[in-house]
């Protein structure tokens, strides 16, 4: 036996059964003096839905572009499907599906031709393309619009077609950059439905969003990005447990003066673990709602409305970054 063979064998045994689909460490992207992504670490495993949550300009899209091999990293390490985008861009792009933030369907072509030609970009055989295109039109609920041009389609339809197009090459990994931004609530729910279906079928999804409900609904694990860095990571539940209290008391006031006075009083009374004064409400984070409500009742100017609710990712985001996502 050659020396070294047993070591290799034992190393293979101790390694996890499957390497991550994406591995990034100290991943950095700089444009001249501007740092878009500042040394982030994360891993995406096969079969999970992984989210990047953050405000506009937090570095989500730059990260996605590096994963999608259309933007070269400045520093750090990145592996996608076990390959380095440097030198393997073509191979990786052949095995992933990309749903960009901005619709870039081919407006000079019909719905059908959009799918057809996209398949050709992957150099797939024509009979395979036709078969898949039929299936994907069904999936995207666009079979009836097959021969229409793309322009007259609604925003939701265009998004569904963009997703269908991204599935033409049977990707091992699907990248979705703000998949539901700009859609009305009904179109969003329909789109989520399609994404759940993909997830159930075992697809690995990586998505960016600045909608907290979307992250909470779709993501198994997520990272919160703020100013080019990852500031928190975990499952939605774990993040809420770790960073927020069990419940939140939300108070609205008739005037901003009343709001400021109340926030100050609640803070001094230690009404909860943390008191946040926002543009139009005061949030009291608490693990003892009875105690907090007692303090609220004692306020000189009572609030116009009181809402007690469980903590959400929105609260986690606020706790960590000190801002709300829509600010």
């Amino acid at each position: 036996m050659r020396p070294g063979t047993p070591a290799v064998a034992s190393a293979a045994v101790t390694e996890p059964a499957e390497p991550p689909l994406i591995h990034a460490s100290s991943l950095t992207k700089r444009f001249d003096d501007f740092t878009a992504v500042d040394g982030i670490d994360f891993e995406v495993r096969r079969g999970e839905a992984f989210g990047f949550l953050g405000a506009n300009g937090a570095g989500k899209s730059s990260t996605m572009r590096m994963i999608g091999c259309v933007s070269e990293r400045t520093d750090g390490e990145l592996q996608v499907l076990g390959l380095d985008p440097r030198g393997h861009g073509t191979d990786i792009r052949g095995r992933i599906g990309v749903v960009p933030q901005e619709d870039n369907l081919d407006t000079e072509l019909t719905v059908w031709d959009n799918l057809l030609i996209y398949g050709r970009y992957f150099d797939l055989p024509r009979d395979v393309i036709r078969r898949r295109a039929e299936e994907l039109l069904e999936f995207a609920q666009l079979t009836e619009r097959k021969h229409d041009r793309v322009d007259p389609l609604s925003g939701g339809m265009k998004r569904r077609l963009t997703i269908a197009r991204a599935l033409m090459n049977r990707p091992e990994l699907i990248l979705l950059d703000e998949p539901t931004t700009g859609l009305d609530p009904q179109a969003r729910h329909l789109l989520w439905e399609r994404l759940y279906q993909l997830k159930r079928e075992g697809a690995t999804l990586v998505l960016t969003t600045h909608y907290l409900d979307e992250a909470e609904q779709l993501c198994d694990r997520l990272v919160i990005m703020d100013r080019a860095r990852i500031v928190a990571a975990g499952s939605p539940r774990a993040l809420i447990d770790a960073h927020a209290t069990r419940e939140v008391v939300e108070l609205r006031f008739a005037t901003s003066d009343a709001r400021d006075d109340a926030a100050l009083a609640l803070e001094q009374d230690a009404a909860g673990a943390r008191v946040e004064a926002l543009a139009e409400r005061v949030l009291v984070y608490t693990d003892d709602t009875d105690h907090t409500m007692g303090r609220v009742d004692a306020l000189i100017t009572p609030p116009a409305s009181v809402l007690v609710r469980r903590s959400t990712l929105e609260d986690v985001y606020l706790m960590i970054t000190g801002r709300t996502l829509d600010e």
């Binding site: 999608g68 259309v70 861009g89 073509t90 191979d91 792009r93 052949g94 990309v98 960009p100 901005e102 619709d103 870039n104 369907l105 081919d106 407006t107 000079e108 996209y118 970009y121 992957f122 150099d123 090459n169």
Partner: peptide
């Protein structure tokens, strides 16, 4: 306006 080339470049095309 079409961002047609962005779409192409997210495939194996360079």
């Amino acid at each position: 306006y079409g961002k047609t080339y962005d779409a192409m470049l997210s495939t194996p095309l360079g």
